[in-house]
């Protein structure tokens, strides 16, 4: 119930959006943030609760996948596909920020 999974917004229709979790998984979710097609959002229990940068979406996917492996092989496989897709989409974009750069300094 506190999982948040990143997804890319495909279409926005009023309070709802169709998002792509990668690996061919698409869902209709409620939009609790202002988001446009192409944005990455974090989805919790059927609602997009926050927006993230694509690089951050990748970081979240990598951490989730590691945990998912011990929970469900299907989930880990789906996340694998999502990671692959996001990586190749990022490879075509500008170089990402330094790892951990979004974390608060000590």
């Amino acid at each position: 119930m506190c999982w948040g999974v990143p997804a890319r917004v495909l279409e926005v229709e009023g309070f709802e959006a169709v998002v792509d979790f990668g690996g061919g998984v698409r869902r209709r979710v409620l939009l609790l943030v202002d988001a446009a097609p192409g944005d990455y959002v974090v989805v919790h229990a059927g609602s997009a609760i926050g927006k993230v940068k694509p690089e951050e979406a990748l970081e979240i996917l990598l951490a989730l996948k590691e945990v998912a492996e011990s929970l469900s092989p299907e989930a880990a496989e789906a996340l694998d596909k999502a990671i692959e897709e996001l990586r190749s989409s990022l490879a075509g974009a500008a170089p990402s920020k330094a790892a951990g750069g979004s974390h608060q300094a000590f």
Binding site: M1, L32, H44, S47
Partner: peptide, 19 residues
């Protein structure tokens, strides 16, 4: 309808909008 604060708006939005 279980959940913490994270889930509450998922209920509130459709209710508030009369959906």
């Amino acid at each position: 309808a279980i959940g913490f604060e994270t889930t509450a708006p998922s209920y509130a939005l459709p209710l508030a909008k009369g959906l």
